[in-house]
């Protein structure tokens, strides 16, 4: 069901982004990247938050009521890492088109690199703890720790310094400086990519449960 909704919404996003929305002032047609770059960046943050929330539930769930929570957090982090890499790549190409160079160490670029490094550190920590009985607890604790500090990096620090990125939706003037059509298609893009993330997460969870079933059968 989700697969079909994602297909329809993605087609709609592509169609509207190229056929309906006017191009922005100054940026011109390159502004159409925003309807894909921003949702991908949003999913990289969303996956991180979901991973953190699952880690919290894992640490609180002493009775083992929910199965494979830490593994599901890991699956969400994998998707988040993939989307972070895509954000960096799409952002770099757009930066070359708009600002003339692939990488400028703009505050937003720095914070997405920090998010990327946090993901990498999480995977390195988890693989270093491969034979450790406390692996799940320690990696969950790290994910929660970084999830709590991450909003400062993603949402606060980029607003403290001058940036090449355009003004965000949450800004000091409390005004959304975006035409209505652009806002609508951006929102549609965000919803489409969020549903795509949900779909990918569901497949990853299915894989986890299949692996668990195979392990249990081989133990028997």
């Amino acid at each position: 069901m989700i697969k079909h909704i994602v297909n329809v919404l993605m087609l709609l996003t592509i169609a509207l982004a190229f056929l309906w929305v006017p191009s922005a002032d100054i940026l011109g047609h390159s502004s159409r990247i925003i309807y894909f770059h921003v949702p991908v960046a949003w999913v990289s943050v969303l996956a991180f938050i979901v991973s953190g929330v699952l880690s919290i539930i894992y640490l609180k769930d002493r009775d083992g009521k929910y199965r494979l929570l830490e593994e599901r957090a890991h699956a969400s982090a994998s998707i988040g890492l993939a989307f972070t890499i895509l954000t960096i790549i799409s952002g770099s190409i757009w930066a070359k088109i708009s600002w003339g160079s692939f990488w400028n160490w703009d505050p937003r670029e720095r914070t997405i690199v920090v998010l990327f490094l946090i993901y990498i550190a999480y995977f390195v920590l988890r693989s270093a703890l491969a034979d450790n009985p406390d692996r799940r607890k320690i990696s969950s604790a790290y994910m929660i720790f970084t999830m709590v500090v991450m909003p400062l990096f993603i949402f606060v620090i980029p607003r403290m310094y001058d940036t090449l990125h355009p003004d965000t939706i949450i800004n000091t003037q409390r005004k959304i400086k975006m035409a209505l059509e652009m806002r609508m298609v951006l929102l549609l893009g965000v919803v489409s990519f969020t549903l795509l993330y949900v779909y990918l997460y569901k497949i990853s969870t299915k894989i986890l449960f299949m692996k668990k079933t195979i392990e249990e059968r081989s133990d028997e």
């Binding site: 390159s30 895509l86 799409s90 190409i93 088109i97």
Partner: peptide
């Protein structure tokens, strides 16, 4: 510019 936009989205 449109080709560049296409390139970005194809990469995604």
């Amino acid at each position: 510019v449109l080709y560049s936009v296409m390139a970005v989205i194809v990469v995604l």
